[in-house]
Write a protein that binds this DNA or RNA. Structure first.
Lengths: 304, 304
DNA sequence: CAGATGATATACATAAATGTATGGTATCAT
DNA sequence: ATGATACCATACATTTATGTATATCATCTG
């Protein structure tokens, strides 16, 4: 028999801090503890799990394979405690406390701010955390309370509201058209400068499937940062996909080849347990109505 | 200003124990602490989250609404720490330590034991925890390491292996047929005693959709316990759905109306991170091959 | 109705975890 | 070389958390 009893859960927090900061001292500073204490926590945890977690050196602690295996679990613990504290924040019947929202970069940076501004004007005590990233945060891990998703939610425990489809089309800035002309057919796209993503995300793959001509196309500007792509597009660097309702806001963007269109289905998703929380309820509703407005913009454009 | 610093993570463990056992004293016994300590933990946690968590009384502690809101988070913490310790168990290259498997009741009780017996004979140091229940355990919450699922896995982070379809058919024991005769058409089923589930699970609903005649049927024996249903069937109480490969093992079970068949698709699913763990890898493989055998219906060794 | 049981709350002693101070060693810029 | 600055490890003092003992109240049981 090795471990007699379960280790203190605080050790996991310390463990994570050491992993993230690379040294006992740095972790101690982060946690408001002292270096010897952090060292003792790690020693105790190593004893409990029966494995070396770090190779000590004077320039810091290097995680072992065992430590890397445990890391995601510790991260889950951290995000769960954070979510717990968020859930506990705010009173029962007032709309106050913190709500964390996850959305794609484009939606998060371009579409949500005005919606959230209205919401916060209405509820001054509401604190909003917005995680705008194209990496999927997992609602079940409670990294976010509410998410705007581009995939149909599969899990039972999630409360989902279908928004509709956001239309993506090909756009270019007027200045680009002025210099390079306007492609009239899909084939002519090969002669143009195209802007696109670097890594392949799920929805890029979907797009590739739908428009195989995109596969061979050489991109003259690529980035994983949506904002960078967007600014590149607006700066007239080239032609790229852009959310139609967003493009309508900028009169200098020209819609090219309207027959090329990708529709991404959109949901607002929340964990079922949160529906009793006023601040989540209210935020959820605001996102739903705000995004419905936004999407409606893309449908009217469609008809033209 | 309310709470200056994050509460000890140990408080969450204590909190959960109090929730589950209903009193400070009982929680203290469970945790190997004393009643005053547990009381102090709860006090401190209430101070931190700024809410009353329990209404104290001499007959125990009654959770407030706030406590019930926090409960699922605390449960996630508990299952995550359990999973972490499981992940840490066993050495890096040997197949040892604990692996937790989740499966439906029927699969878990009837199909997996022989597969797991072979596996454990091969790897004596492997410890298997089997959760046989029709409630879905969540792999992302790491309640189980490996799951046998009847729904297609949606999450990206999961490593899934498609097994194929398990056929369900209508069966009855010979003794039942002897007493009540054999239904020759679907309509005649209404005249027979039927055995089925009490609550509606997802796959029951699917079945209803496929065979609408089942909807109005009055069940003369119902239970949520698969084993009870199975024993009822074998005792000759009535006619019920049964997994075809399982039924083959018992020569006394008669296949009725073979045109009525439900096929449930089956996957073995594991969290992607676990594929580097030998014990999970090995168990995953064993489950896949074992279940493939089962689905294929190769019952050469079974002569009961 | 009295006594046993099981609950929380409090006071005090004790054990345990933490902090402080210090020493040793690698790395880097001067 | 040579300080300066990171870092970890260890010894010792102190704070903090925990356990023990006890008081008090409610509920069940004979």
């Amino acid at each position: 028999m090795v471990s007699s009893s379960e280790p203190s859960w605080d050790f996991y927090r310390t463990f994570l801090a050491v992993l993230e900061h690379g040294s006992l001292s740095a972790a101690a500073r982060e946690l408001g503890l002292t270096q010897p204490t952090v060292g003792r926590h790690i020693d105790a945890l190593e004893e409990s799990v029966g494995a070396e977690l770090f190779t000590r050196s004077q320039q810091g602690l290097l995680p072992t394979d065992a430590a890397l295996v445990l890391k995601p679990y510790a991260e889950t613990l951290a995000s769960t405690t954070a979510a717990l504290l968020r859930a506990a924040s705010g009173s029962k019947d007032k709309v106050s406390g913190t709500v964390r929202i996850s959305a794609s970069e484009v939606i998060g940076t371009e579409v949500l701010p005005p919606i959230l501004a209205d919401l916060q004007a209405k509820y001054p005590e509401l604190v909003v955390e917005l995680s705008a990233s194209d990496a999927v945060e997992d609602l079940l891990q409670r990294e976010a309370d509410i998410a705007v998703r581009m995939v149909a939610p599969a899990q039972e425990a999630l409360l989902a509201r279908h928004i509709g489809v956001i239309s993506l089309g090909l756009f270019a800035h007027r200045s680009y058209i002025a210099r390079h002309g306007k492609p009239e057919t899909v084939e002519q796209l090969r002669l143009h400068k195209l802007i696109g993503f670097d890594r392949q995300t799920a929805y890029i793959r979907m797009m590739m499937k739908r428009y195989p001509f995109l596969d061979g196309v050489r991109l003259s500007f690529r980035s994983d940062h949506s904002t960078a792509l967007q600014n590149a597009l607006r700066a007239g660097i080239g032609i790229g996909f852009y959310q139609t309702p967003l493009a309508r806001r900028d009169a200098n963007l020209v819609h090219l080849l309207p027959e090329v269109e990708v529709a991404i289905d959109t949901w607002v998703v929340m964990h079922e347990n949160l529906k009793t929380s006023p601040r989540c309820r209210v935020t959820f509703d605001a996102l739903v109505t705000g995004l419905l407005d936004y999407v409606r913009g893309s449908e009217t454009e469609d008809q033209s």
